[in-house]
Design a protein around this nucleic acid. Sequence first.
RNA 1: GCACCCGUAGCUCAAUUUGGCAGAGCAGGCGACUCUUAAUCGUCGGGUUGAAGGUUCGAGUCCUUCCGGGUGUACCA
Length: 532
Amino acid sequence: MAAPCVSTHPAASYSLKSCISNRQDPPSHFRADMTDTIAPTEQELLDQELARREKLERLRAAGIDPYPPRVERTHTAAEAIAAYREGQLGEEDVVKLTGRLVARRIMGKLTFAHIEDGSGRVQIMVRRDLLGAERYNEFFKKDIDLGDFVGVAGTMGVTRTGEVTCTVTDIQLLAKTLKPLPDKWHGLKDPELRQRQRYLDLLANPEVREVFRRRAAIVRALREYLDGEGFLEVETPILQPIYGGAAAEPFVTYHNYLHQQLYLRISFELYLKRLLVGGYERVYEIGRDFRNEGISHKHNPEFTQLEFYEAYTDYNGVMARTEEMLAYVAQKVMGSLKIPWGDEEIDFTPPWPRIPLRQAILDASGIDYEDYPDADSLRAVMRDKGLDAPADASRGKLIDKLLGHFVEPNLIQPTFLIDYPLDVSPLAKRKPGTRDTVERFEGFAGGMEICNAFSELNDPLDQLERFLAQRRDFDMGDKEAHPIDEDYVNALMYGLPPTGGFGMGIDRLTMLFCGQTNIREVILFPHLRPES
RNA sequence: GCACCCGUAGCUCAAUUUGGCAGAGCAGGCGACUCUUAAUCGUCGGGUUGAAGGUUCGAGUCCUUCCGGGUGUACCA
């Protein structure tokens, strides 16, 4: 394997350190002039920011702490409304509510407003006669802004229009905001701002908050399912001396004190299978993978992956488990096996169609890749059909290209494609009776690949041969070829039982369940270039 | 990586086609208003039009370069 530049240097640690110390500009978060941006002069403040700071000073001058250390809350917004509707709150019962002031309608001596907490919004009615003229006019109307966190005490009732409302007898500032909030009606739309300042996106757009609740529910359901099936959740290294388990370029990092080059993992596979050598029969891990590749609407440099490995099953068993697991998740998260997807509906009811990859490509493109036993002949027929077929692509990569072009976009309903080329599956077991096909499947839905699985190769000598083939690919320029992991081969020599393994991108599954077509919509803080 | 599109007030958007005083709503300041809910009414402030350069009497608008973002495409989950 060709090592990246740092380790080929005879004094690797020296070169990296000097590189750091020679950097012209220290990171901005260490710059002495940083206070300029955090503590701008008055001229640099917006008029609205100035107004809020003046209010802050007025409050302090009046002996009011704009950021008090604690507050008492008796109900969330939703709880207060529910309790009133269920008749648990009488006219005399005082509730204490907290939240962000998100809307305010001042009508002289009476004001209606809404506060929002984690449970939702509740209307409050603030009256001068209940609060006192001074407190109502000077404190509530003048020094409290939209966006501020407040605590109120009051009684629950209903307005003429029928909205359950808290009539306020006391109001307290909990946290002063110094910047104006996004538009109350349109929310925050600018996609760049939404991602760079996700907190604004979340506070302005409730539907975004729902996406990440649903994401959490999906992960919870996956854990529930796997735990219930006797799988052990484990954690394996993210910093790895040798990466592996997938075809991808890694991120490279460096341990300063061990003088060791390390990679951020691109998959969990080789570590998890070592655990089956160790005697566990069912293990899984949910965590972050890192791939040093292009960014797109389907790819973020770091993404969340689920992998599980199960002894004494094969890819057929894993397909059945996949169907069962995703049906469980759909039912648990969406309350149905059918989930909306654009104008259509994706039905996760088992079983899913199982189509040999060769057949699927033949049906969609008219090309039977078995007629083209080498890369050159397959490349020729693909180019005849006007497809982009790179000169350095292997036969397996060309087949994958056919899959991506002709088949994948049309697989809206959950579908398994089975039996993949061996040369792009160096960790999968050969399908009996074939020369260059492995027992591997990929699951598709919504026109996206969502999972990848196979009968795990457990023949150590075959595995070594496959690694050596990968090294030849790497030497030929395939930057994504697998490096040789000698310790993994060594582990196999102590015996890996027949095993089925599975990997699935959680981000893409979340896209599917949330009707999103861009991965950034399901990652709280997606990778962005630095601001200029 | 390549192609195309976008960047105007804190936010959402006009003005760009055909170069001619940079505007509206929300938000904000001041004032009125005790059942509103995108409250309403009056009034006022708020801009290095992403950055730099160029063409022009005159550039938000046309040209060049750069920065950031989006969409498509290529590879990968």
